[in-house]
Amino acid sequence: MIEVVGLCKQFNRNVVLSDLNLHIAEQGIFAILGPNGSGKTTLIKSILSMVIPDKGSIRVAGMDVKKSSDYRKQIDYLPQIANFPSNLKVKELIRMIKDLRGKTEKDQQLIEQFGLQPYLDAKLGNLSGGTKQKVNILLTFMFDSPILILDEPSTGLDPLALIQLKELILQEKQKGKTILITSHIMSFVEEMTDEIVFLLEGNIHFKGDIQTLKKDTGQSDLEHAIAALLEKNHV
């Protein structure tokens, strides 16, 4: 589904991605992990063409991302910070995204699921961070695209909503989608993901499932396994 070849990107003189290759052919949930500044968000944004690569090519569902914006119809993206036009009401934002992307019926179900009815007529500027994140999630899961990209999806959610989010992600997985997640919460990652892509200094240092990672590093839990990966590379 996603094919990244020789991806290079630097901001000013700061090299963020250097000759990164990533091939995700299969379905399932992939966690993109790495320390701060390792290029996770840059990688995701490159896939979405929000960041323009210096070198390399990216193909999504067989389409070159440079050629056209149509390939983004295949992607649902949950951005890290949800900040919406403050003058818009929630339902207007939903209507607008539907207007931009096409029809869907799923929004009603999601509104109920996250208990957003009371907020539909509220202006987005007046919402709390958690509610905003719920709206953000709703906008992402409203469509049925084959690829899902979630940047820190659990930020600001209460436990109930977090459980609902996990259920949602698993449902989407059942449908046979490709799901990319970045997260700092290792328990979340361990619970949800099939495979880990570990980024460090602009390149992939590990790609495989959690069991393999634990075995390689000789650690029993993910957090320590990641820490071990980091240490190994620093020595």
Binding site: I81, A82, N83, F84, L100, R101
Partner: peptide, 14 residues
């Protein structure tokens, strides 16, 4: 800006 980013992820030309 953030709204723009939201739009950028949609299938719309820059």
């Amino acid at each position: 800006r953030e709204f723009t980013e939201l739009l950028l992820a949609q299938p719309i030309k820059r």
